[in-house]
């Protein structure tokens, strides 16, 4: 009986050790990258062997948040860096998507300004381990725990990026905070078009979806609120907009209905450039504090974009009546 107990205990310990071994093996992130033709001296690359969290990014990149890790390839000689990243991006329809990138091989930026590496996308449709070139990441010199740079992905950019180096025991818990969106070439023409007549008027919502709270009874209100949260964009079931200018700075009164809730916003500082349309969002009249921003495209009596109110995002499409 005693012998059986010993066997059970030993078996348990063996199982535990095996499981730890598996975990350790899976966290070894970068293996199998060939020795690059050009190797950055480790004195230059070593300071970049860090974990980073994205703190700011050019708004055009459509990246909400992200984190990455650079580390020396295991067993490489001479040592070379490989980076892996996870970015949470806005898709064209406002949904949040995860983009995985590998950064390899690193080379030095001219003038010793930092490092750069091709951004290799790890696509969901690609075969296991297969990556495709998708852009480039440049990391300038690390200053304290901050490092600036720029990124080109999906055929666009470059967009400025700013990262913060994470401490040894620091973690985002898999939920990197939303990065600050850096404005870029902001539209600065007043109004939403060259002539007030182009955009002044009554609009109706054209992307109204089925009301998700319709059969929810008492839970309808909380569903309406919850469905408006997050980065994906609320399911808007109805709405209207009135834009008024008449020589004065134009403002827009917007009503959106989500489930059992009806929200009213005032948009001020309407501006445009090309087909871009932006505005500031207030929820208690034009003189109340700014709670968010409208960003979209428009022209010829149509307007579509994202109305952001704090944690709530409303994807709206309007057409002039």
């Amino acid at each position: 009986m005693k012998r059986v107990k010993i066997i059970i205990v030993l078996g348990g310990i063996l199982a535990l050790l095996t499981s730890v071994g598996v975990a350790m093996a899976t966290t070894g992130a970068t293996t199998g990258y060939p020795q690059p033709k050009v190797v950055v001296p480790s004195t230059v690359s070593a300071p970049y062997e860090q974990r980073y969290v994205l703190t700011a990014v050019g708004s055009g990149a459509g990246i909400r948040s992200g984190e990455m890790k650079f580390e020396f390839e295991e067993g490489s000689s001479p040592e070379f860096l490989v980076g892996i990243s996870e970015f949470y991006s806005y898709s064209p329809d406002g949904a949040i998507e995860t983009s995985l990138f590998t950064f390899y091989p690193f080379t030095e930026l001219p003038g010793g300004k930092g490092l750069k590496a091709p951004a290799l996308k790890v696509g969901a449709s690609a075969s296991y381990g297969q990556v495709t070139p998708d852009g480039e990441l440049q990391m300038f010199k690390i200053e304290g725990d901050k490092v600036k740079g720029q990124i080109r992905i999906h055929g666009g950019g470059p967009w400025p990026v700013e990262f913060r180096v994470l401490g040894d025991n620091e973690s985002t818990g898999g939920h990197p905070p939303a990065a600050k969106q850096l404005p870029e070439s902001e539209p600065n023409n007043p109004g939403w078009g060259g002539e007030a007549a182009e955009y002044d008027g009554e609009y109706e919502l054209t992307n109204g979806a089925a009301n998700p709270t319709e059969k929810a009874g008492t839970l309808g209100a909380v569903i309406g609120v919850a469905q408006g949260l997050g980065t994906q964009g609320a399911v808007v079931s109805g709405g209207s907009m009135t834009v008024k200018g008449n020589g004065a700075p134009a403002t827009a009164e917007v009503t959106v209905e989500t489930g059992g809730s009806s929200r009213h916003f005032t948009l001020t500082k309407l501006a445009w450039a090309g087909d871009k349309r932006v505005a500031l969002v207030h929820d208690k009249g034009p003189s109340s504090p700014v709670v968010g921003r409208f960003e979209g495209t428009g022209g010829q009596g149509e307007l579509k974009g994202r109305l952001i109110d704090g944690h709530s995002v409303y994807q709206v499409e309007f057409k002039m009546k």
């Binding site: 998700p212 319709e214 929810a216 008492t218 839970l219 569903i223 919850a226 949260l229 997050g230 994906q232």
Partner: peptide
């Protein structure tokens, strides 16, 4: 985002 995602479960209940 999670609040929103979990609220889908409330919709599926069709309590009304």
């Amino acid at each position: 985002d999670a609040v929103r995602e979990i609220s889908d479960e409330l919709i599926e209940l069709k309590l009304g």
